[in-house]
Design a protein around this nucleic acid. Structure first.
Lengths: 338, 338
DNA sequence: TATTTTTATGCAATCGTTGTCGGCAACGTT
DNA sequence: AACGTTGCCGACAACGATTGCATAAAAATA
């Protein structure tokens, strides 16, 4: 059962394909009676326009590409959920790639998306990425690009991010006000904007309360479980370990909790733990986990909207690129109790 | 900066497009010297073949469609992770849709995928789907279809599923052996294969240990949080409530735990709770959550492999469709302790 | 030298759709 | 009667790439 084309309709009705095409799009220069017949025949043959043919002609694909480090991460799957919702409503399809925190993989993904002629790209950078030529390449080819969550200032475009500074500031402040004196900050890759912004927030909070900054309390984890455990172990085995740990990702938070439990360290009594996390079960953890929650779904939605606006913008007038900073929410639970 | 086409190369070298095309594919009938020049020029212009043009000619898109109820669900995001990995390696792209547990939405998704001329479809049915005409439609159009996790026997094709019967049997048996007498089973939609299979496993375990089956202990939740809470509330407020609850999804497990905690019901002392779940934090919950874990990643991989085999099969010989049943893993933790 | 074979290349059709152009009636206008 | 309008429709080219067929020139053979 092959799919009917405009030619089949033309043949069946003894018309030209041009006439059928125009009738289907309701052109004014087609006889209403002819239109009726064509529509009827199209219905009968279950005609569906071939988007591939249209893509070829119009040089667009009505698809947008999304590159995330890992799909299987609540933050990103929530964001993709938001992206899919917007794209769906506006008639676009979503093509997904994972960088697995690898620069090389991200590069290949971008090349695939270029080859595929996607109409635009949403990206959250890999933890290894510190060269942005591939993204410049996209822009040079005229493919709109929008960052969400993990961006770089090396590229000029829309960015939709959480208010990482404020989130980290409030979180750190909360720890300080809970009486913690020695607060460790477990960051992600040092290349990432989210890392530097959050560290700034952390430092600002320390400063506000006149707590001296100790470089050795900041650690960078590039997201391999192995590495995280080594770092956390190292941090805890010091002669004078921290009395609070602020982690910046779901995976870090989990690894941290696991290790502390293994070591039978009491939370929050001996060490308070909190983190940037979008785990929905945070309240059900033992102890209930204090979290800086990012509006992942909304972030995906906003980013998709901005991207599609760029894609559909007729005028090539220079755009005022925005950086949208969405507020985070500090949810205080038992893991940081006094 | 437009993308170079085969024509640009032809023009630049004063050759015909046919020659360029053949040179690029290394045809034996092209002069080696000409080949060299063409390759060189293609390199210089950064030529990339246009997959849309190829799709039009070959009537294939090198993309596969995936329909899941929700991306933002650890089981499905893990499965998509597996799907993406396989598709990526075999040169296919993954286009994702969510049915949001809605039959209508699933229908529209299938139509979109058909219109898009995807080469194949992977689907895990929505909880509302009990009519399968849309899937027959896919097959009639020659689009291969493979189920994962949630399937229907009404369609003949490959199916990759967890061993739901055995998983539920072992889980229920574990509860019985832990001394539980009145075990509630919270199923998903009654339309779904996963629901019926798991209930069979549940019943079989009861039978083995001569525990009478009580219809009122089985409840169906169509996945709206509201509905789940009502049902769980109802179950618990009976005069003689169950002493164990077996839930079949991540969301049900979470809702159940939340409500029990709100009611200050002791787990596992008063009621044991366990479930089919792929939450990675199960061990960090309070209490640590006993789980029947499904090999979600592998399920996605196997399903994608089977689908791509179907897509690429030259011969249209009738296929021996398989139903691959992957073993689940029972991880016993504190929530069902004696 | 005449003929065949080989080599290397170009032409044109194709995939499904749309845009440009042009044409043919049937009108209405002077 | 001659001309201009208008309504309606078809032919053709184009998007990018592939491919069967034709064909020119060069090489091999008779």
């Amino acid at each position: 059962m092959e799919t009917a084309t405009i030619k089949d309709i033309a043949k069946a009705l003894n018309l030209s394909t041009s006439t059928v095409s125009r009738a289907l799009r309701g052109s004014y220069e087609i006889n209403p009676e002819t239109k009726r017949i064509v529509l009827e025949c199209a219905e009968k043959l279950n005609y569906r326009p071939n988007p591939i043919a249209l893509s070829l002609k119009e040089n667009r694909s009505r698809a947008i590409g999304v590159i995330v480090p890992e799909i299987d991460n609540p933050f990103f799957s929530q964001a993709i959920n938001g992206i899919e919702a917007i794209a769906y409503n506006r008639g676009y399809h979503v093509v997904i790639f994972q960088s697995h925190e690898s620069y090389e993989r991200e590069l290949v993904n971008v090349q695939h998306l270029l080859a595929r002629r996607v109409d635009g790209v949403l990206i959250s950078l890999s933890g290894q990425t510190n060269n942005y030529e591939h993204l410049h390449g996209l822009q040079e080819k005229g493919v709109p690009l929008v960052f969400f969550d993990r961006f770089t200032d090396a590229i000029t475009t829309h960015k939709v991010i959480a208010d990482n500074f404020k989130g980290a500031f409030e979180g750190t402040e909360h720890l300080i006000l809970s009486g913690r004196k020695k607060i460790a900050h477990l960051g992600a890759s040092s290349f990432l904007s989210i890392t530097t912004e959050r560290i700034k927030g952390y430092k600002a909070a320390l400063e506000k309360y006149n707590i001296p900054f100790d470089e050795s309390l900041i650690r960078y984890c590039n997201f391999s479980i192995q590495e995280m455990e080594t770092i956390i172990d190292d941090l805890l085995s010091e002669s004078n370990p921290p009395d609070a740990i602020f982690t910046v990702s779901d995976r870090l938070a989990m690894a941290c909790l696991t290790i502390l439990k293994e070591k039978h360290i009491a939370i929050p009594k001996d060490i308070a733990v909190m983190g940037f996390t979008n785990l929905k079960v945070a309240s059900l953890l033992e102890p209930a986990f204090t979290a800086v929650v990012q509006p992942a779904l909304e972030m995906g939605q906003r980013a998709a909207e901005l991207l599609l606006d760029l894609v559909e913008k007729k005028s090539k007038a220079p755009t005022n690129f925005q950086t949208i900073r969405l507020p985070t929410e500090l949810v205080i639970r038992k893991s940081t109790a006094l």
